[in-house]
Design a protein around this nucleic acid. Sequence first.
DNA 1: CTGTTCACG
DNA 2: ACGTACGTGAACAGC
Length: 888
Amino acid sequence: MNIKKKLLLIDGNSVAFRAFFALHQSLDRFVSHNGLHTNAIYGFNTMLDRIIENTNPTHTLVAFDAAKETFRNAKYSNYKGGRAKTPSELSEQLPYLKKLLEAYGIKSYELIDYEADDIIGTLAKKAEKEGFEVTIVTGDRDLTQLATDRTTVSVTQKGVSETESYTPDHVLQKYGITPGQIIDMKGLVGDSSDNYPGVAKVGEKTALKLLKQFGTIEKLYDNLDKLKPSKMKEHLEEDQKIAFLCKDLARIRKDAPITLTLKELEWKGRDTAKLTSFYEEVDFKSFLKKLDSKTKKKKPESTKIDYTVLTEDNINELSLSFKNGISFYLEMSGDNYHLAPLVGFVIAYDGKYFVSRNCELLKSEKICSALEDPAIPIDLFDGKRTFVGLARLNVKLSDVDFDLLLVSYLLNASENSNDLGKLAQLHDYTDVSTDEEVYGKGAKYLIPEDDQVFFNHLCSKLQAITALKSPLLNQLKENKQEELYIKMERPLSFVLGNMELAGIRVDQNRLEQMGSEFKERIEEVKLEIYNEAGEKFNLNSPKQLGVILFEKLKLPVIKKTKTGYSTAVGVLEQLRGMAPIVDNILKYRQIAKIQSTYVEGLLKYVSPKDSKVHTRYTQTLTATGRLSSVDPNLQNIPIRLPEGKKIRQVFVPRKENWEIFSSDYSQIELRVLAHISHDENMQAAFKRGADIHANTAMQIFGLESAEQVTPNMRRQAKAVNFGIVYGISDYGLAQNIGISRKQAKDFIDRYFKIFPGVHQYMKKIVEKAHKTGYVETLFKRRRYLPDITSKNFNLRSFSERTAMNTPIQGSAADIIKVAMINMQKMLKKEKLQAVMLLQVHDELIFEAPQEELKKLKKLVPNVMDEAVSLEVPLKVESSSGKTWYDTK
DNA sequence: CTGTTCACG
DNA sequence: ACGTACGTGAACAGC
């Protein structure tokens, strides 16, 4: 196992300084029993824990400035002159800080004649050469000059626990220059805290402008005569010497005479005993407690697990009863469990572990009967994946007791990793590695040949599942989410597994035929575009297209992106009519999208075995509780435009004389909103079966009757309704329907007056989120919104909109999930041949023999209707046809 | 590996 | 004054 080497370099003085001033108001609260100030140590410690957790360094060092005088004073005697003396409350902490570092097992280092920067610069360069990934932590932006593709510079913000990470890209994005040009900038601007002046009257803005034009100070002065005469030019001429000197002062040395080797910086972790006594000395109670709980949790060296390798010969030694339940993990080499090779498994009961690479053994009577017996409780991670994997061996996983993946997702839907090791870590269980650590990733992904390594990893997964079972189930109980787990997500995982296994049939010939038609049209349009542009270029490149449209053809620039001109649909639509090329580009985009994503993309997934595509539904990904669909994504098959909609013609039933049947909830999200907001006006509209958008239009435009609503009014009202569901803002609404912000605000104000219950709901839910830190759906699905208290307007606003939207979107997701579970049961109970195939958020798609259609037409809407009882009726619409295209 | 664009609800 | 609608996945370009 080859873990990447990571070096963490900390600018000791600078971070301590930042920590000291960040906690300056609390200076008096941070005094130990013998009178020592501790605020800087405390802040430093907080930062240290965070950065270690985030970067997982293998090597560490904290650099300090040695004495006052360095080589820079020899070059410029005023260097750092006039700087206020370090306050004694801070300097008294420095020796203790070094003690803290010692307990952390981190080396402190200083070097006569050099500053901490130079030590860091030198070691970073050295480490890079040896293949390290380097993280630098400092409070001083000057160090961003050291950023490279292998070195990230984290600069502390306001406090010290939050940092801003500077990669070369980030420097470029923020300043428009490369890290190397930072020193040129400092040369021109100077540095007041280090007391060197730079060029008179040149500040950051001017410096950046000059550097973007010329690159470096040297080139700037080589080309000074190209500048128009100005005051600035005079200053530049006068201060030339100073500029070069300042640049030299700003340059961090990468050749300091450091005798340390990188090997000496290897980090072996904290010394708990030393750290405990240090914390006691400085009265850090909270850190002591943290340390205590960490050491307690650590299990007595359990890295090596006893297991038995199963073979055909010893399989009979397995217990017969498994009555206390089993835990089970089936390993596959790859993500797509419909296809990934089954490479091994582990089964455990009564604390004994049995492993094998031979998954055929799972078919043996002994194991198979246990997995298929609903009376034997099974604990695992990702029941759906396991269910599908076993189904490939014709083993039918019967029931699951504890599914770590599902439970973990319900406890916190935002932390949605699919890796057992990572999830376990989130719950403070650290005795299991992640798959990435053991198997590698990308091209290096490999199931280990070493049995010891592989089997040990599998066993440690089961240990994690067992260890987390009762604490996580307790948390579910505290959150009142047991029912959500037992009645909804756990049974749903099997429903989804069956849908995935069923798959939907694709008419491959038809799809290929469509492909060649699209291909011809693409070629035609492409040729026309090249003609109109006067040259060939890569039409798929927004960058190249931007050059043609906005530079060559001189069309007006409507919107810019981070990297250049925007060429998105909205922009192109505004350019329509100005040049014929625009229409053709839109046409090209449309067809090229269909071709690459839906023709070629889909063909890649058609199984040669059964002519079907088997998507995977991700049950534990979205923050709201919706499903998502991958490989292929069958939840975004085109429907809005006629060209794209044709793709639906290739989705066909599995048998002759069968049809595709589809039912969808109409306006489910608005109905959910009417329910949870108790808004009487909105509820009344749904109860009398009104066209909800027309109704909204009538009311916000103050009309007498529905007949007076024009199509345009309805369109605008519809946008307002959508906006409400999304957590409305005047800006967003204005953008969407192309009106002014003021008009949009007007609409919203009127809307809230007409639907006061909705207004109340919006206010209350945001309040609740502020108070509790989370919001919930009808079925107690929970989403945490940590940013809701942020001082950053953007983050906070986003969280507030999310607080409004999540209960609506999430409850709708809950409802259809209930319907799916009931539907599956109903199909079985009624002994129908019909198969549930797909879910598209508010829609369920089936295939069925023609003779069952009549029955389904009643049954499916009934089940969907009765999934939940709201204060307003639900409405379900159905249709059927020979292909998915022909439904509705 | 990130950003842009575009497909869906 | 700030500056975005909510939730997704795939293809592609260009580093």
